[in-house]
Every structure is written in C-alpha cells, then in structure tokens.
Write a protein that binds this DNA or RNA. Sequence first.
DNA 1: GCAAAAGTGTTGTCCTTACACCCATGC
DNA 2: GCATGGGTGTAAGGACAACACTTTTGC
Lengths: 245, 245
Amino acid sequence: MTKKISNEKPHEHLIKDAKKLVQAYPKVPLTVDCVIFGFEENKLKVLVIKSDLEYYQGHYSLLGDIVKDNEELDQAAYRVLKERTGMNDVFLDQVRAFSHPARHPGGRVITVAYCSLLNINHHELKIHDNDLNWHTVSTLKDMAFDHKEIVDECYSWLQKMIQEHPLGFNLLPEKFSLRELQNLYEAILGVSLDRRNFRKKFASMDLLVDINEMEQDVPHRPGKLYKFNFEKYEKNKRKWIGIDF
Amino acid sequence: MTKKISNEKPHEHLIKDAKKLVQAYPKVPLTVDCVIFGFEENKLKVLVIKSDLEYYQGHYSLLGDIVKDNEELDQAAYRVLKERTGMNDVFLDQVRAFSHPARHPGGRVITVAYCSLLNINHHELKIHDNDLNWHTVSTLKDMAFDHKEIVDECYSWLQKMIQEHPLGFNLLPEKFSLRELQNLYEAILGVSLDRRNFRKKFASMDLLVDINEMEQDVPHRPGKLYKFNFEKYEKNKRKWIGIDF
DNA sequence: GCAAAAGTGTTGTCCTTACACCCATGC
DNA sequence: GCATGGGTGTAAGGACAACACTTTTGC
C-alpha cells in the first residue's frame, strides 16, 4: 500500500486499478499455529502432534494449518482448534507472526501464532494419530520448525495474561476448589503464593460463586467448590485493572 | 503444517518433499503498515500519507509496503520506517496482523501492523509528496483501508505499553523537563496527573539523569532538564514491573 | 489418632493519594 | 507586581506481605 512515492506533483498518477496492483504483489504461504494450553496433574501442558514431515521425523509440532482463501486468521485458528479438539467458542487470541525465512524447510512460510486455554478433561482427544497428546510445557524440546520459540513466547504471553485477566479459569473445570485455582496460578507463574492472601485476593475480586458443594473423593478434608462468575467479569471488563501477586 | 491427519497407522506416509508441499500452499499478498507516533504541541500525532489509490482519493493511509521475498516482517517494517523518515535503530514492535478479506479494495491483502515512537523534531520529513504529515491522533477519521482500526488498536497498545515500559521517552527530545514528560503521559493516557506525585514516581524509579541544565526561552520560571538513563533501564529491564498511575 | 489440607484474622509496611505554599523567571 | 509554572513535604488510607492455629475428613 502507498508503495511508491512519486517525486512529481501529487494526485497526478493515482492508481486506478487496485486489483491489478494487488495481483502484482509478491505472495507468501501463510499458516496459523495454535498453542493450546491445558492444565492437568498440576502441570501446564500444551497440545502437540508428531510432525508429518520426514525432515522432522519424531519431533513434535504445534497444531497448525494453512490459511484458506478469504479466510480470516482468527477463523483459521478457530477452525484448527475445532478440527483437532472438537471445541468451539473458546478463548483464542492472536499472539504474533513468525516470519524467519528459514523457519520452514520447504521454503518460506509465515505463520501467525494463536493461544488458547482449555480444560483438558472437558474434551477428550478424539484423534490420536500422529501421537497427538498433551505434553508438559516444562519438558518440551526438539520441536519441529520454530515451534519451541513459538511456545516459549506464548508461555510468556500467558503468564502476563493471567495476571491481567482471569483467564486461568478457562483451564479449570466448571467447578473447582480454591486450592486447584491456586495450584494453577503457582504452576503457570512458577512461584508459590500464600494461601490466605491468595484466598483474600480472589474473595475481594468477587468473581467466584460459592455453589454450596464440596469436593468429593479427596483423601483429606474436602474444600468448597466454586464457579467463575463470567457474567460479572464481562460486565466489569472495562474497569479491569489486574491481578497482582 | 501437520495438515492432514491420517486415520491409518502413523509414520506410514511422512512427507518427504517439504518444498513440494509448500509450493502447493495457497499464497497471499502480505504487507506491513507502520503506525509511527510522535509528540508535538502537547498532542499525540501519527505519521500519515495520502493514499495513492484512486479508490481512496483524498484519504489518509499509514506508511506501508509489501513484504519482500525472504524479508522478515520486522525487517520490512524497519525498511519502511527508514525509507520514509530516514530513521533507523528506533523502537519498533509488532502489534498484530489484520486479515479481513475485504480490507483492501484490490483483493485480499493481509497486513501486519508495527508501532513505533519517535521524536518529531529530531527528524524532519524529507519527502512531502502525497501530503506526508503528522496528523493529530484524536482528529483522525476517514482513513483508507482499515487503517483507522489499526491506528485505534495501536493507540490502545501504546497506552498500555507506556505504563509498563518507559517508552514515552522515545517521543521526547534527548533533554526534557519533567513538565514535558508529564504532558506526554497525560496526553497519551487521557488523564490528568498530580504534579508532585508524578515527580515523586519518576524520582523513585531513578531513571532520570539530572544534567544540570535549565530550560531556555520559556515565558516562566525555567525547569531543570533531564536525560533518560537508557543504560540503567536496559540493565533492569527484566525486573521491570511497570509504571502505575 | 494421625496425616493432609481447609479455613480463618491481625499487624506492620509500603505505596498511593490528596492537598497548599513559596520560588524563580518573563513580561 | 503579576502571571506562570517550578519545586517541595506530609498525613491519611488502602493494598500487600508475613505469619499460626484450629477444623474437618480419610485412612
């Protein structure tokens, strides 16, 4: 756009044929890659699949796909998520584009990374081909392409995000105990938090609904279960300041 | 990537020819657009240029260009910045990609927005063709393409960014008074701040160097001039928590 | 009764906010 | 001397961090 700056008078050679202009543009293959975080066994996990490129045989890669003609990037990311996990209508956010010319062994491919959080137990993986599985984030290595870099960046993004917005709830079951919530924050942020202060913090935010149920089948005193008050959060989103620890 | 999930045994049809695979991918034209913010007359401004598309005759657009073959997105953005302002080695950050299929009248073009802050007086615009000029952000309208949306998003990004990192300094001359600094923050955040508290805040951050000079030619008591301590900031970047008002 | 985690309050410290007066300079 | 902004301190309130004991349940 506005590509050539003339050194003559302005408005003398406006481009009339926008289509022709665009057709002359160089084109690049474009993909989306989804970094889908989950939480299980007190560990942050990410959905990975064995690469189907011989070049990366045995290495894990992210779930990704080509962006189709006339498909929005967001759409493409939602499509990948739906196709691979059966889930729609979840949180999904663009993180950034990765464009290193040599990031794909088959030639230049630019990818846009998307981040998503979901509850592992809420959706069983239907397809296990290519070893699709939840991999602990902290032990990931040797990924295909630049996918490790993408995961790292998305992880940083997630750490920042859950302190500014209560997105962590997307990783938990509908009903959860305060301990589960705290475990989640501790695992993602890599810190340990004072239990009493943690509970006070969330109590004062007034985003938890006490549903008058207790944990079942735990080998210790059961805790109360809560739901997240999505409605209230949506209402006050604009005024939202953040969660500090 | 990892496009097709087979429903047969894994590892049976790994893709051998990565190049062929990529060549079969659909391709899209890709551009970068730079949202270059400046600060002048106590107003936040953005660098715009008249669109050279007849379709958008008279409308302003951002500075943008095609991403060249084998050019990284960051590189492309730096190139645009250099070509249009003569400036290199300034702060520049990717904000996000915009991909609406109808965002360009000539067909599908995906663009990646970059944000940059620079000191208006430090670099005179060398080329004034197509009415290249600094436009007050608050009075922008009727921009070409989806550029208004891009500017809006970058403005939000900037508001957030200058509260987390002392990037505002990039908008000021090397030497500046505390009042100038405060004006900058007030203009960008759209709030008014208590002068004493503002000064205390920055004093406690210890990022300003008193250079023992005073303002000249001001119609009132001159204030002290400061420089920003870039070195110190870079050192402590990792521990950086933020600037809250 | 023992292990394991749930649940609960107080205090000190620090940070943030609100607020008013005198000072230096240009005109 | 008057207008304009520069420069400074303090007190109150709110948020955060540190900290220990009792309760409930499963085994």
